[in-house]
């Protein structure tokens, strides 16, 4: 399959995403520039982490106006897969492809650490091969990863099974002790109502090799691979996976 990775000015994790696609997954990687206007056949588009436009004004606020984002939005509207990691998640929220917003960590400090992300739903192309409730050890590294949304939106997210990851402890318990940034409901990642767009703060791409960061993040990429291989359609049609 083909993965597109968008480089915005200030993207830092684009090279890592490209490396994982090519060297770990053995798939085709397409480097997309923010001034590009089409996705060159990418099945899944990754908006990587970093500090697009320096995070000035608000994280992701300016990246959403990049020329490439029109193509990303169109791709998502057609049911194409979009994976936003960290700054990519912030961009997807700013662009309105995902509900809610990410604000400064409650500690007010940047935090780089390993967290445990509990898989809340397998009804997405990104978690379809995982077990519900299974725990992934993944790194986080962000200053503004506190997920917020108004109560109505939060209730909708829960009702429609759109919360994909929550921060948990080693026993899988969700609580304030396991929450690294103050996110409401310990939310670490959410998907769109159509389930083809995922945003998350933890970095699965930095947990794909035993030597550096472990391999738990592979679960996300492998899910996408097998979902597409099994006939999940990436472009044009309604996604196969529906909310329960």
């Amino acid at each position: 399959m083909r993965w597109g990775v968008v480089t915005f000015p200030g993207s830092n994790d684009d090279a890592q995403a490209l490396r994982v696609v090519e060297r770990v997954l053995g798939d085709e990687a397409i480097a997309l520039w923010h001034k590009d206007v089409d996705l060159r056949g990418a099945d899944c588009v990754i908006l990587p982490g970093g500090f697009s436009y320096g995070d000035y004004l608000r994280c992701g606020a300016m990246a959403k106006f990049s020329p490439i984002m029109a193509a990303v939005v169109a791709h998502a509207r057609r049911g194409g897969l979009v994976l936003g990691i960290c700054n990519g998640f912030q961009i997807l929220c700013e662009a309105g492809l995902l509900p809610g917003a990410l604000v400064r960590n409650r500690s007010l400090s940047f935090v780089c650490d390993l967290v445990i992300a509990r898989i809340e739903t397998t009804a997405t192309p990104f978690t379809a091969s995982c077990g519900r409730g299974s725990l992934l050890t993944l790194p986080i590294k962000h200053g503004e990863g506190c997920y917020v949304a108004d109560e109505t939106t939060l209730a909708e997210l829960e009702a429609r099974d759109q919360v994909v990851f929550r921060y948990a402890d080693a026993a899988g318990r969700v609580g304030p002790e396991a929450n690294p940034n103050g996110s409401l409901g310990n939310i670490a990642g959410v998907c769109s109502a159509e389930r083809n767009v995922l945003g998350l703060m933890p970095h699965p791409e930095y947990a794909t090799e035993r030597l550096v960061g472990g391999e738990d993040g592979l679960a996300v990429f492998r899910s996408v691979q097998s979902w597409l291989r099994d006939g999940g359609r990436s472009r044009g049609d309604e996604p196969r996976v529906q909310a329960p």
Binding site: V103, R106, L108, C146, V148, L184
Partner: peptide, 14 residues
């Protein structure tokens, strides 16, 4: 300014 009711960690800390 932050919307009322939205967590404002900076405001709280100040």
């Amino acid at each position: 300014t932050p919307k009322r009711g939205i967590l404002d960690p900076q405001g709280k800390t100040v």
